[in-house]
Design a binder for these strands. Sequence first.
RNA 1: GCCGAAGUGGCGGAAUUGGUAGACGCGCUGGACUCAAAAUCCAGUGAGUUUUAAUACUCAUGUGGGUUCAACUCCCACCUUCGGCACCA
Length: 819
Amino acid sequence: MEKYNPQKIEKKWRIIWEESKIYRTEETLEKPKYYCLDFFPYPSGDGLSVGHCKNYIPTDVFSRFKKMCGYSVLHPMGWDAFGQPAEQEAINKGIHPKITTEKYTANYKRQLSLIGTSYDWEREINSSHPDYYKWTQWFFLLLYKRGLAYRKKAPVNWCPTCLTVLANEEIEDGKCWRCGSEVTKRDLMQWFFKITDYADYLLKDLETIDWPEKIVLMQQNWIGRSEGIEFNLKVKNSEKTIPVFTTRPDTIYGMTFVVLAPEHPLINELTTQEFKNAVENYRKIAYQKSEIQRLALEKEKDGVFIGAYAINPMNNEEVPIYVTDYVLMTYGTGAIMAVPAHDERDFEFAKKYNLLIRVVISPPDWEGEELKEAYTGKGIMVNSDEYNGLPSQEGIEKICNYLDNKGIGRRKVNYKMRDWLISRQRYWGAPIPIIYCDACGEVPVPEEDLPVLLPDIEKYQPTETGESPLAKVQEFVNTFCPKCRKLAKRETDTMGGFACSSWYFLRFTSPHYKKGPFNPDKVKYWMPVDLYVGGAEHAVMHLLYARFWTKVMYDANIVNFREPFNKLLNQGMMHAPDGRLMSKSKGNVITPDEVVAEYSADALRAYELFLGPFEQDAIWSDRGINGVFRFLNRVWRLILKEKPLIFTKRPSGGAEDISRQLQKMTHKTIKKVTLDFEKFKFNTAVAALMEYINFLYSSLDKKVLEEIWSETIDTLMLLLAPIAPFMTEELWERTGHKESIHIQPWPKWDEKLTYEEKFTLVIQVNGKLRDRVEVPVGISDEEMKKIALKSPNAQKFIKDKEIIKFVTVPNKLINIVAK
RNA sequence: GCCGAAGUGGCGGAAUUGGUAGACGCGCUGGACUCAAAAUCCAGUGAGUUUUAAUACUCAUGUGGGUUCAACUCCCACCUUCGGCACCA
């Protein structure tokens, strides 16, 4: 027998598979389709680590499995090559992103082939290629035409290191998600997508998809829907009114002051002369503060009085108006009625400035004493005139009705989610296809003029001016107005990377289509994605944006589904042996290259699957992989060398004939592995195959009918094929099969053959295990009782006691309850 | 602070609807093979008590209660770890 030589056979099959195009996608109406997709990766210079493989291996195993089960499977791969990470890399290394991108994608592709993935490379896409971003721009225009892309000057998040604006989702703890610098505010003219128009829609349709609860919850929280009422507060000695939003109108009688955000437009008009200086000072300081300082939890609430008074519409009480930075201009109306008794922040503020704290919702067991902290729960209304005695819920209804009827306010829904900031002052992205003309204003680039090509330039470093590097490229900026043909200027900002990944899953269905972003027939055939697999870190970014674009497409009648990804799974992260995340800077990266060289791609695959549950984090261990490597060697040896005592006809005498047990074991294993694969439980599937082979080895000194042995080893190879594609292909060939193992039908199990004839009857006394007896399946309760009572071990524990009852579980156990 | 997930041998992890806790693997121990080692193969391996031995018993799934004939699984309280959100009125 030739030794298992993975280096040789893996290289051999990689070449054969590529030449025979065995992984080309099949599109046929005769089979059900299955679209299995990985998150769109950004190809980094560091290449793949075994951590990344924790995602790609399981989806590959599953795709192979589905294909063997008779599906036509779409399992594509492409590159999210545009965007900041790629550009930053290029800047750091001083090499043009176009060049680095090309190099890195080639490396990724090589590594993915190395580990035996079955991607259809004829469908490879790259978001930084003009034939791709042409359509990203096309989608921008679609949103624009539907009123969902607009430009406004707004204080936006600015990263002083990356020199660009960031979307809200790209800020973590007030810091840039990429470089960790503190984010500051800057007033810039920016493009936004109106995702808030779809807030409710995005929220509701979460019910229709099979996603991890965790992600659904994160999206719900991110969207942050809250129902309330917006109403106007009159200002004493002024015509102006201040709109405020509240979800707790039942606490309106507890309003003892009003607070405005520092950016509030009414501050200038309402502040009295006397307080102008103090207010201006406060605003200046607040405005200079970075987000992180402003949001710091420990920070004391402060603010200044503006000299004006607002009037409570319920009782005409006059309350002072303050400006403070704990109120955000970007949510609700940027002003609130402050109810210190029932809001923690207002309470803190009132304490600091000795403002009145009036209880209007009675906390449980409250007897009129002063509150030590705000009571934010619901309760019975007090100190609220005719509303006294009402529970909160009713109070909310009644007061809303009152304000509504009086024309003072109206019910409103607010969302935490903000519009999606799409402009980036960066070179490496899809140019925003808009032209500014002195005569015609903002003009979209006509579809037939797409793509707006990203010029090839030398100086792509970002600038501090808040302008994209493209602004300095005269040939790019200067153009003609598509409407009036006069001289005009192009928009020089590019789109953030998340634009590209908001539709790429559609492009895979027809990656070379020229007449549109995708071929509608192919989209109809393949979409939606049946299984989408990636990390949880994209919960509120990519996964929300892609859903949004899909809904816009649905409304525009270009797709016939409202959700792009039916089922979503998040893989756990793979940590380095030191328990930390793998990263080049920490020097603890383990690459698939080194593992494949030392063991084999098949061993790497099997090990990553076996390490633990798919969704759970795992720690790479250099020792553990030995176990699966041994297992693969045992498979190799068993199939090529070992055999039990084979016979062709019923023999007499000699060794024990275990044909029947073997057959049962085979069918039980098929069932176990199949069901485990369906449930993405690859670790127990591998374990089942290990048990299977252990059983086979223990059968070698027994007698087996020839056809059963041949079924046995064929099944072993087939079940293992998605996990260890190289080795099984080689073994399949060596055992005389002509066609590739990867196009064979998945083995089926015969349910009858998974049933046992005997089982271990567990005998308990008062719930404690006392004995075990082998008995035939299907025996009656009475028989079980008889057997149990005969057990000497059980007898020991019941002899001085009175038997009260028997509890039986058919084919499992009997419990004798005795006192 | 709020929301969510998870705590099982020396380690990674298994355990249908509550029904044999620790599958499978790593590691370790002993043995076989070998001049020797590696590799491979065989056996053992939760802790404790007991027995010459086979055996048997007690304890054990983060902690403390509860429901149940029976709890890793269900309920209540708490502890720890990880993840998310964090002035959203």
